[in-house]
Design a protein around this nucleic acid. Structure first.
Lengths: 397, 397
DNA sequence: CAATAGTAAATCTACTTTCCTATTACGAGG
DNA sequence: CCTCGTAATAGGAAAGTAGATTTACTATTG
């Protein structure tokens, strides 16, 4: 119930924030369009734009033409006003990926430089690693400074303590690492779970683009789940929300899978594939092979797999009731639309729930893309909020 | 990213809203305290209070004394500015409760009148029923009009369609009933699931009073779960979030419980009690008897029950990671602290999760209390927002 | 020549600062 | 024990300021 109170200065700050937010959302706008959207008068719009331009936050990027009268100036956010560095940190014990992949983008969202790092440039010292990656990408992009760093990590991040937990990459589990990075490199830092970032990418440019909210089911070596509430992700008290692998399957019973991880995690899927005569190093490969094949064994394997995934799906659907569930992760990607249809069928057969199911629409590295999207969002919000030097928030009890 | 833009009028509206919100939150405030909290100047504070008083929203309820100088006027929200009617609608097929219980309260939250209705005053016509209850309580309280109606129903409510679903009370499942009630009685109406309302009561005056967010596990005839996100409840795409009874327990296996409802729902608990030699009409009675007893059978029954509840708890804890889970509903209430301790012990024994567990602190009808709290919140918010006749919200893409 | 972009001047709203008066508690002096 | 002066505070009035709007004007383009 806390509402803002203030004087004329607050008004000006709000109008600048609103204008900046519209420029960010819409890309390019003329003074006239801005006037329409904010409801402000012509002189005020001009004045606000003058301030933003002088502050280096907005720039004129062109002029209209065609209509009668003078050509209106077209304004946009100044892409050089901030630089975001996104780094995906990976646990390489089970994949062939590089341990680090990173991208640099400007405030407009354009990717300035991107690279994968097959070996750790600072060998176990995260601060050195980030410093080296930042220097490398800045040199390639011709930028001199990074404004914000967004990390994607295979573990959970607790913003309270600034520690990344459950991470198996040397040095990265150190308590207070995030604040240390912020201090050492003079930038703002945020970290997030890789599955959460994949969900953010899915919302911005994937299968969930149009959805108000959704849940993402990650089917890889581990099971994961991200719950998008529309405006933010559900993170949980200790950053542990979505750890669906721990969901138990009833009372402990001998010979039965104990939890969802042992029912539908990577090893369980691989074992299921082997039982159906498929060979391969990982679950992903077996599922990919089965999805391509037209044999009875392939049908049986995928059907059995779908039955298991449908159980995971039902847990999420019953508890959260999202308008959409997106299947992502290596196994889902390998199974594709064929697996999705089998999952939907098994889900309808075994439960009264009717939540729509999709497979991921992303082919690029979802975690890195999500880190860029998330980092951009942070920078843009802090930019807009900083204009709003809020005077006494009239706080609640 | 949408921010408000506007002119001086918006500023005044915001300052009135902020002042009203503070009066609601803090109860009583002097001009000086208000000045401190809003950061506004003396003349502005006076002017805003004058406006609110003339609009009948605020009143002077007393004067300070003791200090030097004139005695400051003490302001408060005018309790007569709105009247909230809360009605708990019940499915009486399995309990001894009255089918309707209702309370009338003023804007300050004081209960003006309260009554249970052992029979339906309009016999299956919800509009007539509400009209009769409103008339009865208004007469007792000496009020002439109800501002807002909050319904608590044993089913789910979809605000999109205005229909209450999965309800077994005659006439109440009719599509569009909520809008019909609003039109026929000339008031605003909201409805919510009974478990959600119990959670709201638990947040306002129960075990979750201090918690930022929490989950409420309802253990009664049916299983339910409410997920409080701090600012709002998770409702789901179709109002079906928290339908935890549908959570499957792995692949269909003969002789095994199929879902959480068949593991820990009322009938399952009653069967478990019977297997341990307890008798009684309902699960609640058996658990209450066991909780009072000190026999080996009681210990065995409660232990087995705790094992099952721990499974339900683990599902919620793994997926949502709330900072607190409150056990509520008849079975939890009957089991009390003894059952809670056994559940915690079983939870720790079988999972790596460490979510704190509490039992409900409410003894009165949680659903009716929650309906009052929820209705009050609605009315207060719409009151504060109505002061903020917002001029073009500078909306986003 | 008609329509539109942008600026300039005058006006309005609402907030702040400063100053003033009235009211109360308290203590010193009769 | 009463009275009166003093300090402190509540509340209001007057003057000044920031920021927005309206209206009028100029310049530009098809």
């Amino acid at each position: 119930m806390a509402r803002l109170a203030g004087s004329s200065k607050l008004l000006r700050a709000m109008n600048e924030s609103a204008t900046m937010a519209l420029l960010i959302d819409r890309g390019t706008l003329t003074r006239g369009e801005l006037r329409e959207l904010t409801g402000l008068s012509k002189p005020t719009t001009s004045d606000v734009l003058r301030t933003l331009t002088e502050a280096g936050l907005a720039v004129v990027v062109g002029h209209t033409s065609g209509g009668p009268g003078p050509n209106a100036e077209v304004y946009a956010v100044n892409p050089a006003a901030a630089t975001v560095l996104a780094i995906s940190v990976r646990d390489v014990s089970e994949t062939l990926h590089a341990p680090f992949e990173a991208a640099l983008c400007d405030l407009g969202g354009a990717v300035l430089a991107r690279a994968a790092y097959p070996s750790d440039p600072a060998d176990g010292d995260p601060v050195g690693t980030v410093r080296a990656i930042a220097a490398d990408l800045c040199a390639r992009a011709g930028r001199d400074r990074v404004t914000h760093l967004q990390l994607g990590v295979p573990g959970s991040y607790d913003p309270g303590t600034g520690a990344i937990r459950h991470i198996d990459v040397t040095g990265w589990g150190r308590p207070g690492l995030v604040t240390e990075l912020a201090a050492a490199l003079d930038l703002t830092v945020d970290a997030d779970n890789d599955v959460n970032l994949a969900a953010i990418a899915e919302r911005h440019r994937g299968a969930a683009a149009g959805s108000g909210s959704f849940a993402l089911l990650w089917l890889g070596a581990g099971l994961g789940c991200a719950i998008d509430l529309g405006t933010s992700l559900l993170r949980g008290a200790t950053g542990g929300a979505g750890e669906i692998g721990y969901v138990p399957l009833g009372l402990a019973a001998p010979g039965q899978p104990r939890d969802l991880q042992s029912l539908a995690g990577g090893p369980a899927v691989a074992a299921l594939g082997a039982a159906h005569g498929f060979t391969g190093a990982t679950a992903e490969e077996m599922v990919a092979a089965a999805a391509r094949a037209d044999s009875p064994a392939a049908t049986a394997f995928l059907g059995a797999l779908a039955d298991r995934i449908a159980v995971v799906l039902a847990v999420v659907a019953a508890l959260v009731d999202p308008p959409l569930v997106v299947l992502a992760g290596e196994v889902a990607q390998a199974g594709g639309v064929r697996l999705r249809d089998l999952v939907t069928e098994a889900f309808h057969r075994n439960t009264p729930l009717r939540t729509p199911v999709e497979v991921t629409a992303l082919t690029d590295d979802a975690v890195l893309l999500g880190a860029m999207d998330s980092g951009l969002r942070s920078v843009r919000e802090s930019l807009v909020d900083s204009l709003n030097a809020r005077p006494i928030p009239a706080r609640s009890a």
